[in-house]
Structures are given as C-alpha cells and as structure tokens.
Lab assay of single mutants.
Amino acid sequence: NTKMVRFKKGDSVGLRLAGGNDVGIFVAGIQEGTSAEQEGLQEGDQILKVNTQDFRGLVREDAVLYLLEIPKGEMVTILAQSRADVYRDILACGR
C-alpha cells in the first residue's frame, strides 16, 4: 500500500510532520490547496523517502529542515505508505 506522489514545490511543501526516530515520519496535517493535497497525501501517511533522502530513522527536525531546503519550483517526489493505525498510536503516546 505504498504510493508515490510527485509535484513542483510551491512556497512550501504543505505538510505538517509528526513522529521521528524509531517510529518514522508521518503526515500530521496537509495545507489545503497544496500540490501535496491534490496528489493524494493524507494525514497518517508515513513518509518513507523524499527525492533521494530516506526518511526512515530521521528525527522530525531533520525531516522538516530537508523539506524546507528544497528550493521553490523544484520537483518533489515522495514515497509514502498509509499507516493510519500506527499514526493513531503515535498520537496517543504524544509523540
């Protein structure tokens, strides 16, 4: 149940992230009207890879910085997997 989305970065990627470290990086929110939303990313999706950067094992701050450093107008390719069950557990633990 993995999906790959590809879009051109606007002012931002339009994602709020949660998790990090051993639990993985998850989409915690999506800005309305962004390409990330239009391409089908959803809250609870685990981000496995962005462009050439493996997101598994990253701390959340490093994942956020990586997304911020992608220049506006560059193509962004995100490999994600729907993991809403794991995401709910992360929220319940306050991570």
Rank of each mutant, 00 (worst) to 15 (best):
T2W: 07
S82A: 11
N21R: 15
L41D: 07
N21M: 14
Q53D: 01
G33P: 03
I90C: 10
L48D: 05
D54K: 00
Q42M: 13
I90G: 11
A18I: 15
E74Y: 05
D11G: 06
M4E: 12
I90W: 15
T52I: 05
R56H: 08
D89V: 03
D22V: 03
I78W: 01
V59F: 10
E74R: 04
K72Y: 10
T77M: 07
V23I: 12
F7I: 03
G14S: 07
Y87V: 06
I78L: 04
I30K: 02
G57E: 09
R60M: 14
Q46L: 11
A28I: 10
R83E: 08
G57W: 04
V76A: 06
E61V: 01
D85F: 06
G24N: 00
F55S: 01
Q42Y: 02
K3F: 09
E32P: 15
E39A: 15
F26A: 08
D89A: 09
R56C: 11
V76T: 04
V23L: 11
L58F: 07
K49P: 00
E39D: 09
A63K: 08
M75Q: 09
I70H: 00
A80V: 11
G10V: 06
L48S: 05
A84W: 14
K72E: 09
Q81N: 06
G94D: 14
G73T: 05
I90V: 14
Q38A: 13
D45G: 02
F26W: 10
V64F: 12
F7P: 00
E32F: 05
P71Y: 08
R56G: 08
G19K: 05
Q38K: 14
I78A: 07
V5R: 02
T34L: 08
A80I: 03
G14F: 00
I70G: 02
G10C: 11
M4S: 07
G24Y: 00
A84G: 13
K8R: 15
Q42H: 06
K72H: 03
Q81S: 07
I70T: 06
K3W: 01
V86R: 12
G29F: 01
T2S: 06
I70N: 05
K49W: 12
V64H: 09
G10S: 09
L48V: 04
T77I: 03
A92I: 09
V23N: 11
E32N: 10
Q46R: 09
F7W: 03
P71E: 07
N51F: 02
Q53T: 08
S82V: 01
L91I: 14
A84M: 15
